[in-house]
Amino acid sequence: MSELLARLTEYRGEIITSIVETGYMLGNSLLAAVLVGLPVGTLLYLARPGGPYERRWLHSALNVYVNVVRSVPFLLFVVALIPFTRWLVGTSFGTTAASVPLAFVAAALYARFSEQTLLDVPEQTVELARSLGASPLQLVTRFLYSEARSGLVLSLTTVTISMVSYSTIMGVVGGGGVGDFAIRYGYQTYEYDLMYATIVLMIVAVMLIQGAGTLLSRSLDRRGR
């Protein structure tokens, strides 16, 4: 135990750096989830066959995007995206470059989750918005998001946790992060206690994220009280 503590102290700098890197990748992913995923999910909901603003071609196009991004194995997706990443951020290596594929996946995941959450909003809410002469934007912001807000927070929590997991393999393109630290300093140098300590750290982080998400979602939900 004291040995592990000594090692943790020794690698303190690297651990902190790796946590910052993971935070950076997560932050970028969540930004993409909210700024791209949520609008895409909302359009999927609105444009669906039988939806309030049915546009079949738009629905199909977005559906293809979400399905493709979600179905390609992630490691292959990272590699396949390299030319695009290089074009977008000027390099295919490092934490910023690693954020690009993560952002794509986060946006696709959250698009699907938010679409499903919106589908749970009662049909009467849409009917009400129409009867009050709400514009499409008002329908979304004043009615749908207001009624679905607790579900939207919960599914964003799920996306966050998935992204923690996805981000652990970003070492392959020099993205760093906690997962990369565990592999390089723990696994590859046979210091398994360091690896397990990192895993425990991640479990605790995930539990904290889930707890915060559940708490926030519950406080926003007034449907039953």
Binding site: Q124, T125, E127, L128, R130, S131, L132, G133, A134, Q138, R142, F143, S146, E147, R149, S150, L220, D221, R222, R223
Partner: peptide
């Protein structure tokens, strides 16, 4: 034009996450 025609529904169709006053003010907010 629809805003000049009020409508009342069988299932009330109130927004569950908004307090009563906000529900009533909603048509004006729009």
């Amino acid at each position: 034009r629809r805003r000049d025609i009020g409508m009342v529904f069988q299932q009330f169709n109130l927004l569950a996450n908004s307090p009563v006053l906000e529900n009533v003010a909603l048509p004006l907010r729009l």
